[in-house]
């Protein structure tokens, strides 16, 4: 069983294995197909029309499925690899080991935002930004420039305390847990982290930055944490909602998976710290 670990706890060998698998997916072209898929959904998901990947209840199960597919691709390269998660409430400065040259590399230089160190720097020749919205082919970041602070633990806890999964009108104006976690409303969790990283992470082609996967692995973990806190709450809406993926509707682009299929992450992986049934699920 795959165990997703906090990125801060990875051994040097686990870091090497993870970045090597990323580079291999990039080399084969597999990586860029994930970027294309994400951008296609983020441009098509609208508050007033069909919405699947973002600004809708299926934001969480869609990204869970998307990450599972990506993790499976990584594991075809190296079966030992699992997606790490980045707890940005804890590792919240540009000095975090996440941004070290032996892992993701640091922030971009002032002149053009270009990341200059680490395995994904343009000069390595191994990380060209091919799926892009502007002419720049190099990975960019501006850590902490777009917004000063990452979300705090207290802000996360306030969102985790919300008992209702999602509410009508099931979009970026909704009240409830999903939209507060996504960040269109309230303290702003997920969206703010994209903005804090800057560069491609602030755009529709955000998976161009490998930190995308670790950010979303933590958002995914927060969904699991929320389920533990609210065992009586479930995914909403249940049925018959126009433009929105109900509990038993299939999700594009896979068309063979529903939010209901995604509710229990333990069918697919566990976290290094499982909030419940720790003795049963931890190895």
């Amino acid at each position: 069983m795959t165990v997703r670990k906090n990125q801060a706890a990875l051994t040097p060998e686990e870091r090497r294995a993870f970045t090597a698998a990323l580079l291999e997916l990039k080399r084969t072209g597999s990586y860029d197909r994930f970027v294309t898929t994400h951008n296609g959904f983020i441009m098509a998901d609208t508050d007033s029309g069909d919405r699947v990947g973002h600004r809708s209840p299926s934001f969480l199960p869609w990204h869970r499925r998307f990450l599972l597919e990506f993790e499976a691709a990584l594991q075809k390269v190296d079966a030992s690899v699992a997606l790490p998660y980045w707890d940005w409430t804890t590792d919240r400065t540009t000095r975090a080991s996440l941004w070290a040259p032996d892992f993701l590399g640091g922030t971009g230089r002032a002149r053009d935002g270009q990341v200059l160190d680490g395995p994904f720097a343009y000069a390595t020749g191994k990380w060209d930004i091919a799926v892009r919205v502007d002419g720049r082919a190099y990975l960019r970041r501006a850590l902490g420039a777009g917004v000063a602070q990452l979300p705090t633990k207290a802000e996360v806890d306030a969102v985790l305390a919300m008992p209702v999964y999602d509410m009508a009108p099931w979009n970026s104006s909704s009240n409830g847990f999903r939209n507060h976690l996504e960040g269109w409303r309230g303290a702003n969790l997920h969206n703010r982290v994209h903005v804090w990283v800057g560069g491609q992470m602030g755009t529709g082609v955000s998976p161009n930055d490998p930190v995308f996967w670790m950010h979303h692995a933590f958002v995914d973990k927060l969904w699991a944490d929320w389920q533990t806190r609210h065992p009586q709450s479930t995914y909403l809406p249940g049925a018959g909602t126009p433009n929105v993926v109900d509990l038993h509707d299939t999700m594009r682009p896979w068309n063979d998976v529903t939010p209901a299929d995604m509710l229990d992450h333990r069918k697919f992986y566990t976290f290094d710290t499982e909030p419940t049934a720790a003795s049963a699920s931890q190895r």
Partner: peptide, 14 residues
């Protein structure tokens, strides 16, 4: 956005 604000493909989370 539903609240009348705007995003673009360059600034998609703000």
């Amino acid at each position: 956005n539903a609240d009348g604000s705007w995003i673009s493909v360059i600034n998609h989370y703000e």
